[in-house]
Design a protein around this nucleic acid. Structure first.
Lengths: 175, 175
DNA sequence: CCTTTACCGTTCGTCCCGAACTATACGACT
DNA sequence: AGTCGTATAGTTCGGGACGAACGGTAAAGG
């Protein structure tokens, strides 16, 4: 006996949540949030409210089911339903993905006439920090169980930040 | 005599529009759309409706003024007001920018367990296309007047796609 | 048992997006 | 002149995404 499920549009955020649940098993929103930070946030950034709102949306449409903790905070624990699994499979089997999007306020500022140097320097520092962070996570992930899929994406992240540092260094040098 | 201006939040899209108008002078929405495609869309992608909606928003809040064409389509031509110029100056003078965001469905798919190879290949083709496109624009822009600021951002774009091709090539090779 | 600190979760208003659609101008052809 | 095709120009709308702000709950230390 189920209330007739709402029809929603499945977006990138939807699949992000579905993929995490599929990979890590049943999770609460808080755990989803944590998992996002450890795995996909580098190439799929979302605000933390997504970890609460998106599962609720998905559950309302029948892609997830939720059961409630008995005691304590009585948090909801989400699982992927067959419908959810099916949607995820279909999406990930499709061989095309929409092109990557870069949103870079720094370049926008330079375009608007800002002095490039302080911005360049800030960016360089930021990428260095990120790089260190990712390398730390890689170490963690290699020791832990169940994070196998995270490794390649972390690696991609490492390569990505390296390449930026490269570009930035050249920019810094040529002035 | 002006109706009391609405208060809005200035976002990245706002500054994108302001910067374009400042750089190219007064423009219609359609021209803004064209200018976006030629300059910022690589690091600040927006749907074309932004070129219509955002100027209207900005005008309602007093950052732009609009005058109307007399005949024909009676399009609105936007100019930056003093208030707009001031806001733009303040923003671009601030030495910090929010970190760049990458949204990459392809990596998400791989994370979800998709076969990497076709996705890799598609991406490689896409970056090649983009690269050619940008190089074409660079040539254009070098001949045209008034696009001086576009050159560095186009160059950045070129570097960006080159680096992706590099990464992808290595990924392809190692398998 | 009270305070502090960390953890956990939600609400809300606004912005943003993209699909779909409409409308105007300009030729070219008959 | 009409009409057809096509490129150009512009708008509407509904739902998704975002982020600021706030509210609650638990565990640890005194």
């Amino acid at each position: 006996m189920k209330s007739n499920p709402k029809v929603i549009k499945l977006t990138g955020n939807s699949f992000a949540v579905l993929a995490l649940l599929e990979e890590f098993g049943d999770l609460t929103s808080y755990e989803i949030k944590g998992a996002m930070e450890k795995s996909i946030e580098n190439f799929w950034p979302v605000p933390h409210t997504t970890a609460y709102e998106e599962p609720a949306r998905l559950a309302a449409a029948g892609y997830l089911s939720a059961r409630q903790e008995e005691g304590g905070r009585r948090r909801r624990i989400y699982s992927v339903t067959e419908k959810g699994r099916e949607a995820l499979r279909e999406w990930s089997a499709a061989p095309t993905a929409s092109p990557p999007q870069l949103r870079d306020e720094a370049v926008l500022k330079v375009f608007a006439g800002a002095d490039p140097e302080p911005i360049r320097a800030e960016r360089e520092a930021w990428h260095r920090m990120k790089l260190a962070e990712l390398q730390g996570m890689l170490d963690e992930v290699r020791q832990a169980e169940g994070f196998e899929n995270s490794e390649p994406t972390l690696q991609a992240g490492v390569a990505y930040h390296r390449m930026w540092l490269d570009v930035l260094e050249r920019l810094g040098g040529q002035k």
